[in-house]
Write a protein that binds this DNA or RNA. Structure first.
Lengths: 147, 147
DNA sequence: CTTGTTGTTACTTAAAAAGTAACATGATTG
DNA sequence: CAATCATGTTACTTTTTAAGTAACAACAAG
């Protein structure tokens, strides 16, 4: 609610579809896992579909990934669901008559682009496959701990 | 939520104080350069002061940097003005009964931390001095172009 | 045909940032 | 000292974006 959880929820959806691919993949079932509502799930799935990451069929709860999880990066998902994919934002209303106000926008844009690139490089290095593997790893550790 | 310009405005303030250190450094003058209002400027200056980056004296418009611009990084400023300095946010309301919902929070936290570190390394590599130099550079190019 | 699901859109609510205003406190100057 | 101006601080309003909610058409399957 406060900050955007769209990336987190989108990863959740994709991981859910992979892990429960034999089970109920309805937006209602996924929404229960996210503790959210089916409308939000369907909206995120629409964004993932537009980005070419997900295939769906209207009327049936049969979503499938279009690529192997190892070929889907966090950056792919991030760009799919965040319309404004920039992490830092320049104040685009500064006084052009002032030495600072007249130049700082371009100055900061270059600086922020460098930060953005560093973050995106890291996002690109993390695959959905590695996230799913980590989820399984944590799950197995829990089950071992319970025994 | 609106996008935050606090980092951009805070850099603006510090650059302004350096570049116009002989001129009018009142919050009103700075606010005109940002095309904002004195209250916002004073609030950001309070955050910069709390972070030890800025020294001010109540009643007088005489703010000064506590360190050389080369010793102040974008990361320093970012942490000073952004109370929640995290760029990506985990959805902390997921169903613990589900394999995905019960583990994805920790999984994503690790992944997001890696992205955060990459971004912060880049923020730390950019100094206020280099930003000010770039502002001057652009200003001089403009003046050359006008002649 | 009936039921259930997706796809889509409109609307409402919530949260964070920016804008605004007011005022106490401190400094400066005539 | 009094007037003026600046900062420091706080409360409140407005704006913006995401999440929550609801409704319904289109499609699939029994």
């Amino acid at each position: 609610m406060r900050y955007s959880h769209k990336l987190s929820d989108a990863v959740h959806i994709l991981a859910y579809i992979e892990i429960y691919h034999e089970g109920d993949l309805s937006s209602t079932a996924i929404a229960q896992s996210i503790e959210s509502n089916p409308g939000l799930v369907r909206r995120l799935m629409a964004a993932l579909r537009s980005a070419g990451l997900l295939a769906t069929q209207q009327g049936t709860a049969t979503p499938t990934l279009t690529r192997a999880p190892a070929a889907i990066s966090l950056l792919d998902i991030y760009r799919a669901v965040e319309p404004d994919a920039t992490l830092l934002h320049v104040d685009d209303k500064t006084n052009p008559q002032c030495i600072v106000g007249g130049n700082i926008q371009d100055t900061l844009r270059v600086a922020y682009d460098q930060v953005q690139r560093a973050a995106e490089d890291q996002l690109a290095a993390i695959t959905l496959a590695s996230l799913i593997a980590d989820i399984w790893h944590r799950q197995h550790e829990k089950e071992r701990g319970d025994a």
